[in-house]
Design a protein around this nucleic acid. Structure first.
Lengths: 258, 258
DNA sequence: GGTGTCTGTATTGCATTATGATACAGATCG
DNA sequence: CGATCTGTATCATAATGCAATACAGACACC
């Protein structure tokens, strides 16, 4: 491990965080040696760090299998986050209203580097498990929400995002051509919303509208996930998009060019 | 700070976690000196630890105010938690179904020490902001969910909980008499569900049913929050309780005495 | 039922690393 | 324009986290 910085960087803390990050959707509970493998740290170090995290209540330890698991503290962190992000309190009541009106799943997304994060999710229909969980990250340019957000940033910025942003194929139809993606962002900039099909889940359509800050740049997006079996292009344009945009605008602090 | 343990306890990591815990609903963004105050740590230590957390992406830093805020990583931790807790994947589809059937807010709660944690929330109506956020902790014995869970643990355990568990007054009607609370738990044990009124929010009624593990002890509870204006005792008993219990039972791994 | 190889746990001496005092700088205030 | 807050940077000291050990229990494999 290369020293990141000196004197104001606490390596031991960084290593501890590395342990926490070793847990993800496909690594839900880890033994001591799993942690050693995943972090690349020394066995002794992992032993001490994991023990500390356990004592401090950040990791649960199964007394029989001796495996570590995320504790409820991980949810409390999210709780603290929700209070710290001023968008949430503004958005929540409107999102609830929207989801009840539409009877469809509604999400709040924010940009985080070159990914989007689903901050709040209000699932109304059965769907893929991952699609019901807040905190999920997806490559920004692969999602309707990411593209509408980028579309408010101006051509230079979205061009760069479209050309350098990460792309992973989730379905056989995931769009991987960066020029096509750039065109979609441009389209979103003109229309004020974006639609995607079959990108993350087959037969799933996502529609997203930007929540603009005072300067016109999006601070997030309201997104709606619907089934391609029950909605077609027309019904989306007439029944979903207007409500979605109204909701997004009502969340925006300043009212800008509608 | 007293040394907690020796040789397998990493103090620097523990202090870092202390910084993270300094953020909560009423402390959403903290300056360096705020952190010093809240943690009781040395200024230099906080400086280094906060910087580390920032570099590692756990804290966002406002470039102008220099204040720290929880980052999106805090949500990712919740995401990892959701995958690690086997109850979530089982419960989610059923909770969605239930919330759509009832048209009312449905929550999944788990016991965490002497508190309950709302793990998943599916708000269907406008309500208090805090009541829409997962990760919220409440004193177990003050909530319907906590009481049904405890009621499955046997008299000895629930007695102790009722007598020693934390209690805070959230509304003028919050029940503070431990004997009354114990009686409610006993009632819940007999009926297989629990109801509470005006405990956390005025005019709010909570109904909860236990999700039992293979051994009969509850591993969580399905809870429903409704308005006292639209529901009365009878309609709750006939329309809510059965559905709630069915849902809870369908989530339970083993089928026990219904 | 031994023998080998996995685990997770405990101990110890050494030097790396975190420490906290200090000094500097940029605000905001009176 | 001093005074007092901030946040930032530097540095010598020793305390603290380190990694090499050795130990113990579980499992599997002849």
């Amino acid at each position: 491990m290369e020293k990141k910085q000196n004197t104001l960087f606490v390596g031991a803390l960084a290593k501890g965080l590395k342990l926490l990050r070793a847990f993800d959707e496909s690594h839900t509970d880890l033994s001591l040696s799993d942690l050693v493998q995943r972090t690349g740290l020394d066995k002794s170090a992992v032993q001490r760090l994991a023990n500390t995290l356990h004592v401090e209540g950040m990791l649960d330890k199964d007394p029989v299998t001796r495996r570590f698991r995320p504790s409820h503290a991980w949810l409390q962190m999210a709780y603290a986050y929700y209070w710290s992000d001023p968008l949430i309190a503004r958005a929540m009541p409107r999102l609830i209203e929207l989801s009840q009106h539409l009877g469809e799943t509604v999400n709040l997304a924010e940009l985080s580097g070159d990914h989007i994060v689903y901050v709040t999710r209000l699932p109304c229909k059965r769907t893929q498990f991952a699609a019901t969980l807040p905190g999920r990250r997806l490559p920004a340019i692969s999602t309707a929400a990411g593209r509408v957000i980028l579309s408010t940033f101006g051509r230079d910025e979205w061009e760069q995002a479209a050309r350098t942003g990460p792309l992973i194929s989730m379905t056989p139809r995931t769009m991987l051509d960066r020029a096509d993606i750039e065109a979609l962002i441009e389209k979103a900039a003109g229309e004020g919303y974006s639609v995607s099909r079959d990108q993350m889940i087959l037969n799933e359509i996502a529609v997203a509208a930007p929540i603009r800050g005072m300067d016109g740049r999006a601070v997030g997006a309201v997104q709606c996930s619907i089934s391609a079996h029950t909605w077609d292009e027309d019904s989306i344009a007439t029944q979903i998009v207007p409500l979605l945009q109204d909701t997004a605008n009502s969340i925006s602090p300043g009212a800008f060019r509608s």
